[in-house]
């Protein structure tokens, strides 16, 4: 589903946010990308939804080369993936229902279809009972559930989440992790960039650890820190 070869992303010519990174993610997988702030996790996700340019290497999503993509094809790419952020990015002047419906309406999907699909996805994240509330009337965890509903409403094969629990307390984080897990169990490929030890250790899924833009660990059923050793040992900032 996702095939990354020797990816390098530079913001300026002497500092690489991601360097020499290769990664394959199979359809239906659940991957945590972990590492400290500045390790390149967000950049990696941004490259996947083409919000960041590839400097060198190749990035393929569902067989399509994202790096060499015609900008006019970007909307097509993004319809294949839902994206969730740390700060939810809900529209404050629209209700829960309208926020989720908006994502369908802007794709040209008609009212009838919207009325069928939005309640179903809100039900899935447990937010249907608050469908008339505005984002400001919701807790952070509720807002993130709405954001996930919005990301999933178009049934994309891939779900990308960038620090989805960054602003949430531990209990709420676990709820979010379970929702992501549930989406994965229904077949969605999920990639979560996080430094939240709790959810990584709770779900025990594949863990890709990054440091200074490089992949330093790739482990199935991993935990946040492998016991007794530091994954970052021996890694230096690449120039």
């Amino acid at each position: 589903m996702i095939d990354i070869q020797n990816l390098r992303v530079e913001y300026d010519s002497n500092r690489a946010a991601v360097a020499d990174l290769s990664l394959q993610v199979q359809s239906g997988e659940f991957v945590f990308v972990i590492g400290p702030t500045g390790a390149g996790k967000s950049t990696l996700l941004k490259v996947l939804y083409r919000a960041e340019q590839v400097t060198s290497g190749s990035v393929k999503v569902d067989g399509v080369d994202v790096g060499a993509m015609d900008p006019r094809k970007v909307p097509e790419l993004r319809r294949k993936m839902g994206v969730v952020f740390q700060d939810y990015e809900l529209l404050p002047t629209r209700t829960v229902f309208e926020n989720v419906a908006f994502a369908l309406r802007v794709l040209g999907i008609g009212r009838r279809e919207v009325r069928r699909r939005v309640p179903a996805v809100l039900e899935m994240v447990g937010m249907m009972r608050r469908c008339d509330a505005y984002p400001s009337q919701l807790s952070g965890g509720e807002q993130q559930r709405v954001a996930i509903a919005r990301a999933l409403v178009n049934d994309p094969p891939i779900l990308l989440a960038d620090e989805p629990t960054g602003n949430l307390d531990p209990d709420t984080s676990l709820v979010i992790a379970q929702i992501l897990d549930a989406a994965n169990k229904r077949g969605t490929t999920v990639m979560v960039a996080t430094h939240d030890k709790l959810i990584v250790d709770e779900l025990r899924r594949r863990v890709v650890e990054m440091a200074y833009g490089r992949k330093v660990r790739d482990e199935a059923d991993g935990v946040y820190l492998p016991s007794g050793e530091c994954a970052m040992a021996g890694v230096h900032e690449p120039l």
Binding site: Y49, R72, V74, P75, E76, L77, R78, R79, K80, G82, V83, E89, L91, P92, F102, A103, V106, L107, G108, R150, N154
Partner: peptide
């Protein structure tokens, strides 16, 4: 800008935006 960002993220065509 928020609406536009959401539109861009969910893959709305540029004409739609």
């Amino acid at each position: 800008r928020r609406e536009i960002r959401v539109m861009q993220l969910v893959g709305a065509s540029s004409g739609f935006i």
